[in-house]
Each structure stands twice: as structure tokens, then as C-alpha cells.
Design a protein around this nucleic acid. Structure first.
Lengths: 188, 188
DNA sequence: GAAGCTTGTTAACGACCGTTAACATCTGAC
DNA sequence: GTCAGATGTTAACGGTCGTTAACAAGCTTC
């Protein structure tokens, strides 16, 4: 019962609290007691909802990577490659600005995900990257593919820097800035 | 004797091994035993050279931030603002490509540095950012400063993405790509 | 060659961690 | 009203961690 994918309000609360704690203190820096305490519970209560600490992280990363890819596939389908790139940028930026903790955990904690979920997350991440690469190949057909792939990774680094820069910019201003920078970086 | 800043070959070895381990597994994911073992020693041997685990991290981050800033100050002094920006980009990129582990630790583990070194690192980091901001203000005087500062942080995210993208690009090709992307992103 | 400093070792400490067991309470179904 | 399931608690487990203590071996100096 604590095993499979079963949406319950408690599970969602735990995942939200875990995202915040894992982002702020890291997976190894967060104890089960901390995690329960953030919800007004004791540590062992979490075992009613998850098989263990690693299972919380695993479900979190699987969910993030699939959300990014699923919507990425949709956005990349635009017939105009330039519009598709804009749509991908908008999607990734809005996700990063809405979920800074998730972006941080997704970026840092993959190595702590147990198999087989780690392999699954890697596969889904790769599929998401390939959506970007495919759009850019349409946009700049003369560019060698390894260079495009490296550029996409670097662009993610740019867009994902959001959580760390506690800047004085409003959210729309930040979104616009990241879009312009990402676009310029990819099309340089 | 184990206290102050005293360069010894052993200390440098420990710092190098710690950079690698902290980057790969995180500060909390690395034990003193792991760290000693990486050098063919036992854990407690490290206490002959450092006051404790946190002291290793603290010295590492203070050193990184000061190296970045010191050379940053030099590069930013070029009379031509555009040349200064190129020089800053070249510096940061070469540092990141030469020291991927240091860049990773510097980016992720500041919260685990004890006071007062954490405050010191923050101050030096801020000074490094200000070198970039000052150059960009000369280059684009009409741009509001908060936007410039946010752009610099985003650019660091781009340049620091190096360690995660184990790409098929050669080092010169990667350096050239990052330079072009960073320059385009900042001047968009 | 004795003394002392440096740099290691092993053994042991107290604390904390992830997890499990045993038990309590509440809720809904019949 | 009772039973069963879901969801919480406290207590206890084995393991690991950072750190310290006690001791040993090698080098340098006089």
C-alpha cells in the first residue's frame, strides 16, 4: 500500500516538504525526522506513505523529469522551429520560476536516486534534451550536433540559475530576461 | 599548528581529494573516513592537518572565491570595456574547465561552511560579481543595474554548467562555445 | 643517543540516522 | 457495536559518523 504510485494528499504534502528541505540542505543533510517535523509529524510516520527516504527522492525526480519532458514534447511540436524554441524557453522558465526547489533537487540529487528509477530519470531527461536539440537542428541545420547538445546543457544551466539569484527583479522581468538571454545564447 | 593557514603538501592533497569527493557525493555524503581513504590514510589522520571536516570545506571555498576574485579584478581593469568582458569570460571559463570539482563545490556547499568563513566567502563572491557588473555598466550604460546583476548570475549558471555536461566537445571547442554563448547572453 | 616534533595508527566515545516493531486512535462499513 | 483499515505514536535496533585519546614510528637537533 505504501509501495505503488498512489496519489494522496499526505503524499503530496510530504513531497512538497521534501523538495524544500532537499533543495535547502541536500538529501544527505535532511533527516527523516526533519522531514516529518516539517509537517508536524514524527519521522516514522513517513513510512506509512513511502517505503523509505530514497523512495521519496525517487518519486520526486521521476515526477519532475516526466513533467518537463511531457510538456516539452508538446511545445516542440510547433511547426515553426523558431516559435517552438520560444515555447520551450517559456515552458522551462515558467517551471523554474514556479518550482525553484524542484529544479535544484532535479539538478543535484540524481546520484542519490536508487536504481532502477535513476536509470528511468536519466532516460526521460535525455528525451527532454533531445526535444531541444531537434528544434535547434531545424533552426540551425549547419551546426554540428555535439555542439548543439552542449549548448542546450549550457542553456539549462543559465535558466536553472534562477533559484540562487535572489534578485530584485519581478517575476515577469526575470522571465523576460532569461528568455532573451537563453535565446541569444542558443542562436549566437 | 593544525589551525592557521599553513601550506603543506599534505594539506594540498587533502584539499584536492576533498574537492573531488565533495563534488561527486556532496559534503554530507562524504565521510572523514572516505576522505582519508582516498589518500591511503585513516580518517583520524586528517585531524593532524585540519581542525575538522568543516574546516576543510571552509578553506576550500575561501581559496576558490579569492582566486576567482583576484584574477577577476585584474581582468576587469582593461581600459576597453568590451575587451574586459572578453577577458573575464576567458578567465571564468578556463577556471571552470580546469577545476570542475571546485566550481561544483563552490556553487553548492556554501551553506555548510561555518561562520565566520561563510560570511567571508559571500563577501568575496559579491566582490567578484561586482567586477562583472561594473564592466557591463560601462558597456551598456542604459541598462538598469538589477537587471545587469541578474544577468551576471544567469551567465555564471551558464558557464558553471560545464561539470555536468560530459560532452563530446574538445576543451578548446567547449571554451569557444561557452565564450560565444556567454557573450551573446550578456549583450542580448 | 636522548629529546622532541611530526604524522601516522587503533580503540573508543557519544550522537544521530534510517528503519522496524509494538501499540494507540480514529473512521467508516456492515 | 464491532471489526478492519488507515494513520499516527513511542521505544528500540544496528550502523555510521565526527571527533578525541592513547600510543607508535620516524626525523631532526643538540
Amino acid at each position: 500500500m505504501t509501495d505503488a504510485r498512489q496519489a494522496s494528499p499526505r503524499r503530496a504534502e510530504i513531497l512538497a516538504a521534501a523538495a524544500d528541505l532537499f533543495a535547502r540542505r541536500g538529501f544527505h543533510g535532511t533527516s527523516i525526522g526533519d522531514l516529518g517535523g516539517a509537517l508536524g509529524l514524527t519521522g516514522p510516520a513517513l513510512y506509512r506513505h513511502f517505503r523509505g527516504k530514497e523512495a521519496v527522492l525517487a518519486e520526486m525526480l521521476v515526477d519532475i523529469s516526466e513533467r518537463l519532458r511531457d510538456e516539452g514534447v508538446r511545445r516542440a511540436a510547433a511547426s515553426d522551429a523558431s516559435a517552438a524554441l520560444d515555447a520551450l524557453l517559456d515552458w522551462h522558465i515558467s517551471f523554474a520560476l514556479d518550482n525553484p526547489a524542484l529544479i535544484t533537487v532535479h539538478e543535484r540529487e540524481l546520484d542519490n536516486v536508487p536504481e532502477p528509477q535513476r536509470h528511468q530519470v536519466r532516460r526521460v531527461q535525455r528525451a527532454y534534451v533531445e526535444e531541444w536539440v531537434a528544434v535547434l537542428r531545424r533552426l540551425r541545420p549547419d551546426e554540428p550536433e555535439p555542439r548543439i547538445r552542449a549548448a542546450v546543457h549550457a542553456c539549462f544551466g543559465l535558466l536553472n540559475s534562477t533559484p540562487y539569484s535572489a534578485t530584485g527583479l519581478s517575476r515577469p522581468a526575470m522571465a523576460e530576461l532569461l528568455h532573451a538571454m537563453g535565446r541569444a545564447a542558443l542562436c549566437c
